[in-house]
């Protein structure tokens, strides 16, 4: 029964991918390409590309993409449901524990050590996004190899956010439109 297989495969992906985003990639490949042969390796690479270019987590995108390809819309629903079920149960449980016990001083003091690390991890994710934007997938980071258009757009966006207090979503849309406009003028 293909729906059950899709559900169970993506349940494992949802359950064992810690750390989000790219951490899930090898797991998805293991299930979808190696174990079941639902996608070829080149289709899988395409899927990662789509995931990078569209909103949404890689795991959810993969569940939808593979589900549709293998068993249509019901397949996509079964795979997506499998993918989010572990999160629903585990996260809700931890959140319940947290809201119930957070007034305890001991827990507060443990969380005090965690908060600065969270800021650092968000910063690190920002750095990797910018490195991909400025230097693409090239191995070397050089001044000459920098995508200057994107670097200027980035600085402009920072300015609009910090000084102009502009809505972040409009800043992102503007960045996309600017880049397309520059490339149209250039050609």
């Amino acid at each position: 029964m293909i729906y059950l297989q899709l559900f169970l495969s993506f349940l494992q992906i949802g359950l064992f991918s810690f750390g989000g985003g790219y951490a899930a990639m090898p797991l998805i490949q293991g299930q979808v390409v190696d174990a079941h042969g639902w996608l070829s390796m080149s289709e899988f690479t395409d899927l990662i590309t789509i995931s990078q270019m569209t909103p949404g987590p890689i795991a959810i995108n993969s569940a939808t993409f593979v589900g549709i390809k293998i068993a249509g819309l019901p397949g996509a629903l079964a795979a997506t449901l499998g993918c989010i079920l572990p999160s629903c149960v585990i996260v809700t449980f931890i959140a319940w524990l947290y809201l119930r016990y957070r007034r305890l001083n001991a827990l507060q003091s443990v969380l005090n050590s965690l908060r600065p690390a969270v800021v650092a991890m968000i910063a690190s994710a920002g750095v990797s996004i910018l490195v991909t934007a400025f230097w693409g997938n090239e191995a070397r980071i050089t001044l000459a190899g920098t995508n200057r258009t994107l670097a200027v757009i980035f600085l402009l966006c920072v300015l609009l956010l910090r000084k102009g207090k502009m809505n972040p979503i409009w800043v992102m849309v503007l960045a996309g439109v600017l880049n397309a406009a520059v490339s149209l003028v250039g050609t």
Binding site: I122, A123, A125, G126, I129, L130, T132, A133, F134, T149, L150, A151, I153, F154, L155, C157, V158, L160, L161, P168, V171, M172, V173, L174, A175, G176, V177, L178, N179, A180
Partner: peptide, 11 residues
């Protein structure tokens, strides 16, 4: 591609 730079700025 341009939106990546915008996302980086938001972060």
């Amino acid at each position: 591609e341009g939106m990546q730079a915008g996302v980086g700025a938001v972060i």
